[in-house]
Design a protein around this nucleic acid. Structure first.
Length: 814
DNA sequence: GAGTTTGAAACT
DNA sequence: CAGTTTCAAACTC
């Protein structure tokens, strides 16, 4: 009892001290991702509501904890989880810089977490979860403590966690002699942040989600640990190292360990699953396994497991799968100590057994559990994602849901993104409208997402490394960047967001914002021509599509790929994003001041004659970009910028107003993007803001091909500021949103990669020169093809024209 | 929901 | 490269 009081006191004190931090942390957690992603302003706005909610909830929770009264968590939780997951993701994804930020966060979190786990504070990893979890934990802590009855159990749990971490490390081959008890997860994050922005990133979200659920559980345990654990303070450094290593291993191993990852085509998915599993395991361990005993146990376990790293990993994953289920079903917290004790004994005994046995089945079951049993957000999210993915793409390839999600490749990714975005919006809207948008935007905008990007990159790399993925879906591969970007964010979002039925989400998305998930209504093209938006976007047709005789499905992958190649052979940029965001780059040209269209440009330019570039018929307008020199439009009144170069100049008041609005929005986005991407942009004026991971994925081969061979009509001039634009548009005008979607995909994923590559490769400068010289000029000489080689600019991300790369990548060049 | 308009994509 | 046709989205009613 005294312990409980102490805990409370600690928490309280920590809260008092850290309240500010908490708030910030929460904000960051949620908003961080968002903020990073796009315009801070939006994020702030959007986030604000959520944050406030969170804050309140945590506060209330803490207060409750302090007070004898124990409030029930309930509603806040899910949101917090979602938000957390998002936030966490970005943070994780964020580049090293981000990591630094994170560290700060961690610190804060630690403070927060400290209350529950002063000792663990050293472990950054745990903290994040704790933040969310804190609340829950706080609420739960009281219960759990009571239920636990003995602190020992808690301690054991913590040990188990450490064990889990250790196991992970083992699997990785890393032996962390000193694994801080619980932190493994945290450690992972930390690592991901610093080291593996990309890979880690992907994991992180899951982790967070898991934490969201599991943390609560964990925290409960943690609380107990805190009291007891003081003895165990792990060295943060060591722990982090271990985690990092583990994460690395996990990530990298993932490909290697097909089993562990299961069949999931998408590395992301795998990673997620893996992480989630770990997390769950951790939780489970904390909850279940106590018997093995303290930190020592963890180490002891390590040695045992170490024998085969891979095997261990698999086992680990298996165990994760197993555990998660059990844990999920039990909810960790729900299970009484008695159960735990029983389970613990058993669990400890069978751990190894389970792990190994579970191995492959893990994913599927787990998810099911999640879906079925745990109402927890994480589960839902995963489900939602899966569902979405399944619908969209997957079908054939992936057996597992998870695999489905991932596998679909482009289609999936894009769809997922779209769906996710929509879902995110929808779902979040429930909780927080703003947050939802942010998420979406974030997902959408590769730029802002650095973290995401990084994550994607890592993912991409992993994918590239992993034979399965690439081999499986060429088409998917080609999609890469876009998809990746989308995937990650979207995916995450979906998971998080898709608490409800994925289908619903998709549908919602489609109709409303729907762009992310493009729907087509093709009747004669069989969805194998660019007429088909889905096909053009590099996505497989999904349920929402009303197409007839559709061949744009995973089943017909070969056909799709072949067709793609054909089209690409004709026009290498055919699948490149139509709109390229140069926003940043444009700014260089002076566009920025103008806000005008320069920020982003349509690759080819439009050819409107009757619409005045004021309707969606106009691709430029649809893409939320101004018309450029490349445009051959007549009577251009594009609100985003006229081809005259007068960007906005809206001769018409309306147009001007619109433009201004759009600009402002775009500017905001840009600014955000710029902030993030600036370096890149600066380096590459043309470059799209986001440093997408695409580059990794992109098979330079493809692009060079297409580009060199045939520069499409237009040059890449267009800007890739899409994210910004979209975001802005999305916020500001619905109409834009719609248009954006199309571009978005390309934007985010593709543009950056493509452009940069192109630019780089094509030293021919034409593009760059053109862009720089005249922002509006869309038609830069296409030929920049060299992009592949251009070393100079590459140094920077040179996102430049992702458009090209993305697609090329998609094409099964290999 | 059906029909029209529009402009891109595809074809010649 | 230019012109025409095809196509599907966007738009209107």
């Amino acid at each position: 009892m005294s312990t409980t009081k102490e805990r409370e006191e600690e928490k309280v004190s920590s809260e008092n001290v850290d309240e500010g931090n908490k708030c910030e942390v929460n904000v960051k957690g949620k908003g961080a991702a968002v903020v990073v992603m796009d315009t801070p302003e939006r994020n702030k706005n959007q986030i604000a509501t959520p944050i406030s909610k969170f804050e309140e909830s945590p506060f209330s929770n803490f207060l409750n904890n302090l007070s004898p009264i124990k409030p029930v968590k309930s509603a806040h939780f899910p949101q917090s989880l979602n938000t957390l997951s998002f936030a966490s993701i970005p943070s994780v994804f964020t580049s090293p810089h981000v990591s630094s930020i994170r560290e700060s966060r961690f610190l804060r979190r630690h403070l927060l977490s400290d209350p529950s786990k002063p000792e663990f504070a050293s472990d950054n990893s745990v903290k994040v979860d704790t933040d969310e979890g804190m609340l829950d934990a706080v609420n739960n802590s009281n219960k759990p403590k009571e239920s636990f009855g003995s602190e020992i159990s808690v301690v054991e749990a913590s040990h188990e966690c450490s064990k889990l971490a250790v196991e992970l490390a083992r699997s990785l081959n890393y032996e962390c002699s000193d694994s801080p008890s619980t932190l493994p997860t945290g450690g992972i994050r930390g690592k991901s942040l610093s080291d593996f922005a990309g890979s880690s990133v992907t994991y992180v979200p899951l982790v967070q989600d898991i934490f969201g659920k599991g943390l609560l559980r964990r925290e409960v345990n943690m609380d107990g640990t805190n009291e007891i654990d003081p003895t165990k303070e792990p060295s943060g450094c060591e722990w982090e190292n271990m985690i990092c290593d583990a994460t690395d291993i996990l990530i990298f191993d993932s490909p290697g360990d097909p089993e562990a990852f299961t069949k999931a085509t998408g590395p992301n998915f795998r990673s997620f699953g893996f992480v989630s599993n770990e997390m769950q395991n951790m939780q489970d361990f904390s909850q279940v396994s106590t018997s093995e005993g303290g930190g020592d146990g963890s180490e002891s376990e390590k040695p045992s497991t170490q024998p085969g790293d891979e095997t261990q990993v698999k086992e680990y994953s298996e165990t994760q799968n197993m555990k998660p289920d059990s844990s999920l079903t039990n909810d960790g917290m729900g299970v009484g100590q008695s159960e735990k004790t029983d389970n613990e004994m058993v669990s400890t005994l069978y751990r190894g057994m389970r792990r190994r046995c579970l191995v492959f089945e893990m994913v599927g079951p787990r998810r099911k559990h999640l879906d079925e049993g745990s109402g927890s957000s994480s589960v839902q999210e995963t489900d939602g994602n899966l569902a979405c993915n399944e619908k969209q793409v997957l079908p054939p390839k992936t057996v597992n849901e998870s695999s489905r999600c991932i596998l679909p490749g482009i289609g999936l990714h894009l769809n997922a993104l779209a769906a996710s975005s929509k879902d995110g919006k929808v779902v979040k809207h429930e909780a927080n409208n703003a947050s939802g948008k942010q998420l979406l935007i974030a997902s959408g905008s590769a730029v802002s997402l650095h973290p995401i990007v990084t994550g994607q990159e890592s993912l991409n790399k992993s994918l590239a490394e992993t034979p399965g993925e690439g081999a499986i879906v060429p088409f998917e591969n080609s999609v890469p960047l876009m998809e990746d970007v989308c995937r990650v964010p979207g995916y995450v979002n979906n998971e998080e967001l898709n608490q409800t039925s994925p289908k619903k989400k998709r549908r919602r998305l489609e109709p409303g914002e729907g762009e992310s998930c493009k729907r087509c209504n093709c009747k004669k093209s069989k969805c194998l021509k660019l007429y088909c938006e889905c096909f053009a976007a590099g996505v497989y047709c999904v349920e929402p599509c009303a197409c007839q005789d559709c061949f744009n499905k995973p089943i017909h992958e070969d056909t799709v790929l072949a067709t793609r190649k054909q089209i690409e052979s004709r026009n290498p940029l055919a699948f490149a994003p139509k709109v390229i965001r140069s926003n940043d780059s444009l700014s260089e040209t002076g566009d920025d001041s103008s806000k005008t269209p320069a920020s982003a440009r349509h690759k080819r330019g439009c050819n409107c004659k009757k619409s005045g570039c004021l309707k969606k018929y106009c691709e430029c307008y649809q893409g939320g970009v101004g018309c450029s020199i490349n445009c051959r439009c007549e009577g251009c009144k594009n609100a985003f910028g006229r081809k005259d170069g007068s960007i906005f100049i809206g001769t018409d008041g309306d147009a001007e107003e619109e433009e201004t609005d759009a600009f402002e929005k775009s500017i905001v986005d840009r600014t955000s993007h710029k902030n993030i991407v600036q370096s890149d942009v600066e380096q590459n004026p043309d470059s799209a803001p986001p440093a997408t991971p695409l580059a990794f994925r992109r098979p330079p081969m493809q692009l060079p091909f297409s580009l060199k061979n045939k520069p499409p009509r237009s040059s890449f001039l267009s800007i890739g500021s899409s994210s910004g634009i979209f975001a802005s548009q999305g916020v500001g005008r619905p109409s834009f949103f719609q248009p954006q979607p199309k571009f978005e995909k390309p934007f985010q994923s593709i543009q950056e990669d493509e452009i940069p590559e192109i630019l780089q490769g094509t030293n021919t400068s034409p593009i760059s020169g053109i862009k720089t010289s005249s922002p509006n000029r869309k038609r830069v000489s296409p030929p920049h093809c060299n992009f592949a080689n251009s070393p100079g600019r590459r140094s920077s991300r040179k996102l430049i024209l992702q458009s090209i790369p993305s697609f090329p990548s998609l094409t099964p060049n290999p």
